[in-house]
Amino acid sequence: MKAVISVTGKDSMGIIYKVSEGCAKCGANIIDISQSVLKEYFAMIMIVDIDRLNIPFTEFIDSMSAIGKANNLEIHTMHEDIFNSMHSI
C-alpha cells in the first residue's frame, strides 16, 4: 500500500530533510519524489510505501501534519486508493 504526501509552502532550508526524517521515523519508505520551487514557493509530492509503518496510518497522517505546522508548511497525506479509484477504470 502506498500513500501520497503533498507538501506546499514558502521555501526554506531543510524541508525535504524534515519530511523524509518524519517518514523514516514512522517506517514509511519513500518511493518517488517530485519537487519544484517556483519563485519562493515550494511544492513537493512524495509517494511512500506504508506497508511497514510502525504506527497506525491515521497517526502517521497526524505526525506528518504536525511537521507541517511546526515548519509553516501545508502537509497532507492521503491513501493512494483515492487516486487509483478516481483515475483508473
Binding site: S6, N84, M86, S88
Partner: peptide, 12 residues
C-alpha cells in the same frame, strides 16, 4: 496507475 497530474488534479 496514477501520475503526478492526476495527483495534482485530485488535490485541487
Amino acid at each position: 496507475m496514477y501520475n503526478i497530474n492526476d495527483i495534482n488534479e485530485t488535490i485541487a
